[in-house]
């Protein structure tokens, strides 16, 4: 491996890293919002919306992100909507992630026993108070492992962004290999940057998981 080459590639990887992190985090935040709303509608059987979101979840869970990105990137302009590749990436990740987050949060909501709702309402709490102070925190605690797993999965999924010419880590590596044939250095940097991105998130995730779950389940 040539250190000179590594150093000269570094700036491109760094900017690709920040692009990937930026799109990834915004996309995941979007996914989280969609997921909470969708899980809420499905769990509480909200009129029509619950059916719409059930369809949405199945559609996006059962098609690859790459296919979804192609539809957004090449399909929307045909409808007269042209949006930037970056926005496409965020939208794609948000929609895919939303379907996964929805299922993770819904499983938590369903795992909270019905008698907790009764217990809260027997204390005079109305439906909104019961949901926000009792059901949602408990459901979130139960869902945390699944949510953390989803976050890591979604960040790795950003590697298909290169297909819509976003200059993310994967794109950068492929580009550099195509230009200079320094395969070893390019791939080494690619792996390194993914680890630099994901390892802290894994660690923060498991700390968060322990912290949140400690209340209900104790240390283990």
């Amino acid at each position: 491996m040539d250190t000179q080459v590594l150093i000269s590639y570094l700036p491109r990887y760094v900017s690709a890293f920040f692009l990937t992190v930026r799109i990834g985090l915004i996309g995941i935040a979007l996914a989280f919002l969609i997921g909470i709303f969708s899980a809420f509608c499905i769990h509480f059987k909200v009129y029509i919306l619950s059916q719409v979101f059930k369809g949405y979840v199945e559609l996006f869970r059962n098609t690859p992100l790459l296919v979804q990105l192609f539809f957004i990137y090449f399909g929307l302009p045909k409808l007269g909507l042209s949006i930037s590749a970056e926005l496409c990436g965020i939208l794609g990740l948000g929609l895919l992630g939303g379907s996964y987050m929805s299922e993770a949060i819904r499983s938590g909501l369903e795992a909270v026993s019905k008698s907790q709702t009764e217990s809260a309402s027997a204390l005079g709490m109305n439906r909104g108070q019961t949901f926000f102070y009792v059901i949602l925190p408990e459901a979130f605690t139960l869902s945390v492992p699944a949510i953390v797993a989803n976050v890591i999965f979604l960040l790795k999924e950003t590697s298909v962004f290169s297909a819509i010419s976003l200059m993310d880590l994967m794109f950068t590596a492929k580009d550099l290999i195509g230009l200079y044939y320094n395969t070893t250095e390019s791939l080494f940097l690619l792996v390194s940057f993914y680890i630099v991105m994901l390892l802290p998130i894994s660690i923060i995730g498991s700390i968060l998981e322990k912290k949140v779950r400690y209340k209900m389940f104790g240390a283990n």
Binding site: S119, A122, L123, G124, E138, M216
Partner: peptide, 23 residues
Amino acid sequence: GSPAKVREKIGMVFQSYELFPHK
């Protein structure tokens, strides 16, 4: 309407305690 108002005045304790586990 909402039964919440009345339930304030009628307390209930359950067989399975039903404390809130996250608090």
